[in-house]
């Protein structure tokens, strides 16, 4: 890509990433949540990869990281759900943390934690799919 595209991508990516984090963290107060924020985070990474060429060796390292973080995130979701068995009312997916006051950032019990974990999971899964396609393309051309 040309220099203009690279520079603009460099300037924008940080803001897109920050917006994704904002959407995830405020998921229980404003429209958005884990799914939307995770997709936006993946979009920031994809913008970066599309703008700045692709170095296969570097991408493979990234792919390992994204697939590992995806697996860890879904495992933690499962563990948090199982923790509901042992704390409180013995129900799967029990909301065992104190709910707090409606409209504050730290409220709604375990929902913000689920939001963050699902956000990481969605972002990592979409990034893994995209990276697999790009690496496949590179391997054909060799």
């Amino acid at each position: 890509m040309s220099l203009i595209v690279k520079k603009v991508a460099q300037l924008i990516t940080g803001f897109v990433f920050l917006y994704g984090i904002y959407i995830i963290v405020h998921g229980h107060l404003t429209p958005g949540g884990g799914f939307a924020g995770g997709a936006i985070l993946a979009g920031a990474y994809i913008l970066q990869i599309l703008a700045f060429g692709r170095d296969p060796l570097h991408l493979k390292k990234k792919e390992t990281g994204s697939s590992v973080s995806e697996s860890v995130a879904i495992f933690l979701v499962l563990m948090m759900a199982v923790a509901g068995f042992f704390i409180g009312a013995k129900v799967f997916f029990n909301n065992y943390l104190p709910t707090g006051k409606i409209g504050e950032l730290v409220s709604a019990g375990a929902i913000p934690l689920y939001n963050v974990l699902i956000g990481i999971e969605v972002a990592a899964a979409l990034l893994t799919i995209f990276l697999a396609l790009i690496i496949y393309k590179e391997e054909i051309e060799e």
């Binding site: 949540g33 799914f35 899964a125 799919i129």
Partner: peptide
């Protein structure tokens, strides 16, 4: 529908991967 949209993306990406592999 929120969950269904993300699942739709996953299935589309998977079908696309199968299609490009068949083309090769």
């Amino acid at each position: 529908v929120l969950t269904a949209i993300v699942i739709g993306l996953a299935t589309t990406a998977m079908l696309m991967a199968i299609a490009i592999r068949l083309y090769r």
